[in-house]
Design a binder for these strands. Structure first.
Lengths: 330, 330
DNA sequence: CTGAAAGCGCTTACAG
DNA sequence: CTGAAAGCGCTTACAG
């Protein structure tokens, strides 16, 4: 059943059926009702791909995430999704599993016009390529960003929030403070490391190289790096960890080493995922407005798609240090 | 830049360019190389929507999940994704957030030919509608299923695994065993309740109605229902909980009530999500092969899409009771 | 091995 | 307010 069949049954042209569906105000009430009756009777559904082809827009956007099983990204994704759906857009999910190759391959969807725009929640891809791409297609970065790139971006200020997290430990009296970073290939890791260093220096604390350990973003990896830190001649008494999942790994390692958190070791995480309040001790962490970041990113993408002017390109969302039991005790 | 432009530059017809892209073996080596040179030089990318329109297939499949922020569904989704990508299919994500309306609206993507097939990880939708749909379109159910529906389905045997979980508590000597169910509108909840009852009856244990409490699938909801159970005149000493996230809520409630797990209260969860080994005490639970369920579901969907015969329609995957600290102690 | 031509199902500028 | 007609960019059956 196609549009011309419906048209015949309703004694109108296909053009009129099309108008009833897309611009009903252009059709007289009488005709409109007659056409709608037929549409309902035969349960006609327009062939969306034909429409996409004709209008040259798919009403689909692509979201590229580094890890869909991460609670953090799932929440950001949901924010995107909400705004997308409300505006008639479907969301294609591109899970790269932290693989640059796969990130690159998703970009083909844009080049092949299979999606109208793209939100990147990971940006390992080459900077120049990204720059070119954003000149040609609607593209928004969220959470991650690329330094000096003139692309709309939504994130928190990772440097200042990492500084805040570290200063919280300093204010509690800690001086031997370690930092477990994410992969150095990710700019967020470098930013949070920078914030950590800034806090240490501005409080005249020495930055001990062996106190800085790189991990990938998993529980297990942070667990192992923590064991390493705890076996140092002078182990740290406080650790700022790249994210909450890793912070849980750190605390587990402390417990397995016979230490009590926060008494023997204070731990600060990042993101404020749901588990942060379920895990014991509850995590002191930096709250990121995950849902709001997703919403804002999608709103910016819609602006780009609709060709609306964009005065501001960088949006810094508000984060918040949330103090819980992993640093302050019960 | 479109195909005919490439054709001109290479001194061939558009048909030949098309063949180079889709059936290179039908083009002479010489011509093929000449065309590929041009394609690379101008960085031509075919307009996929035009191809979709022409071939009447989109190479996109839809996965409908009840909750994308759930660790369980994210893992199943990843299994689907792996098989999809390997076979040249993109995945559109349909997150219903447990809303039947939204489940229904995703079905339009199928009716409008915007996707080639669909995997449902939730099935609240009307049974007859589903039956009709599956006669017309490639459709696979995974995790959830609908009783008496002749649609390819991948899941574990929820009744027997729930029985196993309950019997584990019985074997530990518990007689006052409660069950916190998921929403009764979900068949999995009814199945697991059935398994619980079977275990109780076959061991001559009374089924105490107040020991059965319904919760939605969240941590908080199970937390509250557990408080209710613990305030009974004769509180249970063991609880089988619908899923792991809820089991964590149950344990939290027990702790907050001054009880020790497993000594005062033994708890069994379901799914074996990653957090089950991070949370303390580690959860005794039923392991579901999440990734494999996703893979199998997508393989079945591919069979349907390709019109291959399917001898068997119901696939029951192997589950496993995993005993950890939440029932047996250290 | 290659090309000319038809056609997939819509939408929209144009004419009346 | 309505219709006839063109055309979006591919693929493929057919002919040579």
């Amino acid at each position: 059943m196609k549009m011309s069949d419906v048209a015949k049954l309703a004694n109108v042209s296909a053009a009129t059926v099309s108008r009833v569906l897309s611009n009903p105000e252009k059709v007289s009430l009488e005709t409109r009702e007659r056409v709608l009756d037929v549409i309902n009777k035969v349960n006609y559904k327009p062939h969306i791909v034909a429409r996409q082809f004709r209008t040259q827009e798919t009403k689909i956007i692509l979201v590229v995430v580094p890890d869909i099983t991460s609670a953090f990204f799932a929440k950001v994704l949901r924010g995107i999704e909400h705004v997308a759906l409300k505006n008639g857009y479907q969301v294609i999910l591109g899970d790269t599993e932290n693989d640059v190759e796969r990130e690159n391959s998703y970009i083909d969807l844009l080049l092949q016009k299979q999606v109208d725009g793209m939100v990147l929640l990971t940006a390992k891809i080459d900077k120049n390529k990204l720059e070119e791409l954003s000149n040609e297609f609607p593209l928004v970065l969220a959470c991650e960003y690329v330094d000096g790139l003139n692309v709309p971006t939504v994130s928190i200020d990772n440097i200042s929030s990492a500084r805040k997290a570290t200063e919280h430990l300093i204010q509690l009296g800690h001086t031997k403070i370690a930092h477990i970073t994410g992969p150095m290939s990710v700019i967020l890791s470098r930013d949070r490391l920078k914030g950590y260093k800034q806090a240490m220096i501005s409080h005249d604390l020495e930055i001990e190289p062996s106190y800085i350990q790189e991990a990938d973003r998993t529980f297990e990896s942070s667990y192992n790096q923590t064991l390493k830190l705890l076996s140092l001649a002078t182990p740290p008494t406080g650790i700022f960890v790249f994210n909450d999942e890793m912070a849980m790994g750190t605390i587990k390692a402390a417990k397995d080493s016979g230490l009590t958190v926060p008494d023997d070791l204070a731990v600060v995480g990042f993101d404020n995922i749901k588990m942060a309040t379920v895990f014991e001790p509850n995590l002191t962490t930096i709250d990121q407005p995950k849902f709001a970041i997703g919403q804002k990113a999608m709103e910016l993408l819609l602006q780009l798609i609709n060709g609306e002017p964009m005065k501001k390109k960088k949006f810094v969302m508000k984060d918040e240090l949330i103090i819980r039991d992993s640093t302050k005790g019960e």
